[in-house]
């Protein structure tokens, strides 16, 4: 299963809501303002690194680039994907849930 999150974790709790329910081994894609959750050095970094051990966490690179960020600023264990990768994930991971 694939969970989609698109809101900044510093403004909204949708990522937290997702992490509370996403089962072990499920995938989570961070896009739009949710890409800030994937960064090193934030107050969330430790929790995200932990989450990356039990879930496949992806981040959409065009949304990083647009915000002056890149794959090098992303936590270890978080996997950058482009739009094609996003499409593949939605096709391969089965059920999709958007945490709006």
């Amino acid at each position: 299963m694939l969970h989609l999150v698109n809101k900044s974790p510093f403004e909204r709790n949708t990522l937290e809501a997702c992490l509370k329910r996403a089962t072990k081994g499920s995938s989570i894609l961070l896009y739009e303002d949710a890409v800030y959750a994937a960064l090193q050095g934030t107050t969330l970094a430790a929790a995200m690194a932990q989450a990356a051990k039990t879930h496949e966490i992806y981040v959409l690179t065009p949304d990083l680039t647009a915000r002056g960020l890149d794959a090098a600023s992303v936590l270890d264990g978080v996997r950058p994907v482009d739009y094609d990768g996003f499409v593949d994930l939605t096709a391969d991971k089965g059920t999709v849930q958007s945490w709006l």
Binding site: K20, R21, T95, Q97
Partner: peptide
């Protein structure tokens, strides 16, 4: 419970959310 809800969600063909 929260965990059970996660598993139930996982068992769906389609999930629609708001």
């Amino acid at each position: 419970g929260r965990e059970e809800l996660g598993a139930l969600m996982e068992s769906m063909d389609v999930v629609l959310s708001a």
